[in-house]
């Protein structure tokens, strides 16, 4: 269940227009001071959008579902396992990837209460709700309530662990492999994995 967005208030429009002007001035000043160029900015945006993909997270999960050895290595050292698939996690700075596995009676949910830490390389650009005050404040206090907002219901007997990300440690949920997928190929399994499943707000 998703909430319908209200039209932004007039003040939000003004605020966004103000920010756009501030950015324009800042870029012009930085360019004049030879700190950076417009072209470098465009390239940085393109490169980010090209490399930060939820498909990377899905590849990791599908491999873990079909290869028990990989799963073991993934849970022991997320960075090394991602590197096996040619996925570089270093986005701005070296970050440690910790993969947390769902299982019978066990569900995991990821949040960053302080800001917005998130494995961008594996999940793509983070959604606004992940960065919102509502999610950051409630996820640690009422994870079942948050899951219900996504239409996700886990049994009362399932223990939910909430992982609070930091600048140094990023988390990824390893969902349970859905029943009845024994005959699917690795590529078909990848297609089942959703971004929200990797954050823990959805089941796969």
């Amino acid at each position: 269940m998703s909430h319908v967005h209200e039209e932004p208030h007039a003040s939000a429009h003004e605020s966004s227009a103000g920010a756009a002007n501030r950015v324009k001035s800042l870029v012009a000043a930085l360019e004049a001071a030879s700190v950076l160029t417009e072209r470098q900015l465009d390239e940085a945006i393109e490169s980010f959008l090209a490399h930060a993909q939820p498909a990377n997270g899905a590849r990791i999960v599908a491999r873990a579902w079909v290869d028990p050895g990989f799963r073991e290595r993934l849970l022991a050292d997320g960075n090394a396992a991602a590197a096996e698939l040619g996925i570089d996690l270093a986005h701005w700075a070296p970050v440690r990837l910790r993969v947390v596995a769902n299982g019978p009676g066990r569900h995991n949910l990821i949040v960053c209460t302080l800001c917005s830490c998130y494995p961008l390389a594996l999940l793509g650009p983070s959604p606004t709700w992940y960065k919102s005050e509502a999610y950051r404040s409630q996820a640690v206090r009422d994870p079942r309530g948050i899951l219900a907002e996504f239409g996700t219901h886990v049994g009362a007997d399932v223990e939910i662990t909430v992982w609070d990300s930091t600048a140094e440690v990023r988390y990824l949920v390893l969902p349970e492999r859905p029943a009845g997928t024994e005959l699917l190929s690795e590529a078909e399994l990848e297609a089942l994995v959703t971004r929200n499943g990797l954050i823990g707000t959805a089941l796969v």
Binding site: H3, T113, P127, E133, Y135, R136, Q138, V140, R141, E149
Partner: peptide, 12 residues
């Protein structure tokens, strides 16, 4: 923000 009240509901 962890644990604070009054910021809901979530807009998805």
């Amino acid at each position: 923000m962890g644990g604070q009240h009054g910021f809901g509901p979530l807009a998805i």
